[in-house]
Design a binder for these strands. Structure first.
Lengths: 255, 255
DNA sequence: ATGTCTTTGTGAACGCGTGCACAAAGATTG
DNA sequence: CAATCTTTGTGCACGCGTTCACAAAGACAT
């Protein structure tokens, strides 16, 4: 994923491998689609194809949740939807705050699929006083000053950071201090958090750069090197090496 | 991650492990920041801390690129910026098209860090005729009809899909047919592509669900199970299990 | 009830990624 | 030039994740 995973040593909470947890939402999506078509059961083969994974992997993943299949038949779709939802904690309501209502923050706020999975946008928060009160996605934006009280009043434990890079760490610190223990970070920065707080990051720029790497490999398989590398010690600020700044991106997004 | 990674079996292109490739952009960002502060050299320890990784891992990563460090001193910042940029293919210009100019597409188009790393928004494409000609981020939106000609005229090899889920696969097919070989997918769907085409996905909903999983684990460590599981075969469409649809999200975003 | 057929659940092997710990390399000082 | 000190580069071991391949389990037909 995109998305990069975060440094989770080997927490393997209660025996469910992290890699499996990351795939459960994928299965859940495929199962929900089947459920809507009133399909009663699926085989591991069919479901795996729909989720884009190996069938053996899928069976092993499900085996961590328990034995929910019937040999010779497959899995009961409705039952599996329930079990996975429960395992992921989606049977309860998760109030979420979004901090940084720029282009991206607004896009996230408008995201319909948000609410459909147990997530509820409790508040939109921005540092710009001019934004305060302005409704985005039907929810009035509130000023950063109220961050702490919003978190505490609503019992928010999940925060989404969509601020510029420079503001991310301070915002993160305030969120954590106020009681948030899970953070989804869209800002192009490495966040430092105390133990017990989970951080996941979504970084557009990283994804694009990984694509570029493979693209370059695909394209230049024969023409090995065009330009030779410059000397290691000398000042080297020519041509393409000299890209713009990174720490202070103008817009509101991953860099 | 977010991003979730895609099914790349073990391609390990020319000896550089996939995991290392995924970290190179992280190092590059930290190095660029150092470069702006005119820091001449860094130790693996310092750089690793800035990038949020283990120093041994960082050294091993760099060893795949060659021996660019000096023992007793560290790494030459400028030189390393150049080497990583070159390795990632960032010394050349990558024209990119964004398809689906909803909230998210617009956010991506406005993203400044886009251009700073060798990526250039060649065109914005949307299926809505009402959008055609309207400028977003200074670039006029073009209609889907022109997708093929835009790709070919600009030599685009990287496409970003920010459409609703239902439109993603058809758009993907057209992109691939027109010559795109790398796709960054924001739509909540598993895309099917022919061999030789890379797909990476960024899925907000999946990231949130993973956070919810860990959050639930943190919260309910003592209170094991509140509600008992329903019977496997019976109709079960109660309470929280009954979430809304997923395949056809109203907004323009991951689900 | 018996046999056949389908599909699950999992044991075992393998490969990738990570982190430790240390030898080698070079800078630096006397 | 020799000794010391810093920091890289990497051999090695370990653990997680993936995949194969098959035995066990149940459905279904006769």
């Amino acid at each position: 994923m995109a998305t990069g995973r975060t440094h989770r040593p080997a927490t393997r909470s209660r025996g469910i491998p992290e890699a499996t947890v990351a795939r459960l939402p994928l299965y859940l999506r495929a199962l929900t689609a089947l459920s809507e078509r009133s399909v009663p059961t699926v085989s591991s083969e069919e479901l795996a194809a729909a989720a884009g994974v190996n069938s053996a992997k899928l069976r092993k993943d499900f085996s961590y949740l328990g034995s929910y299949g019937t040999r010779g038949v497959g899995y009961d779709v409705e039952y599996l939807v329930y079990q996975i939802s429960r395992e992921l904690g989606l049977t309860q309501d998760w109030p979420v705050v979004i901090v940084g209502i720029g282009n991206l923050g607004a896009a996230l706020a408008n995201y319909g699929g948000f609410a459909s999975r147990g997530f509820r946008v409790a508040a939109l928060i921005d540092a710009d006083p001019a934004m305060a009160g302005k409704p985005v996605a039907g929810i009035p934006v509130q000023h950063s000053d109220e961050l702490e009280s919003i978190i505490q009043d609503n019992g928010v434990s999940i925060g989404v950071i969509a601020t510029p890079a420079g503001a991310a760490q301070p915002v993160c610190d305030r969120l954590v201090a106020a009681g948030v223990t899970s953070i989804l970070n869209f800002a192009p920065t490495v966040l430092t958090v105390p133990d017990g707080v989970d951080v996941r990051k979504v970084d557009l720029s990283i994804e694009l750069q990984i694509l570029a790497f493979h693209e370059q490999r695909k394209a230049g398989e024969e023409a090995t090197a065009q330009t030779s590398a410059p000397a290691p010690a000398a000042a080297r600020r020519d041509s393409a090496t000299d890209q713009g700044p990174d720490g202070d991106v103008p817009a509101v997004m991953p860099a």
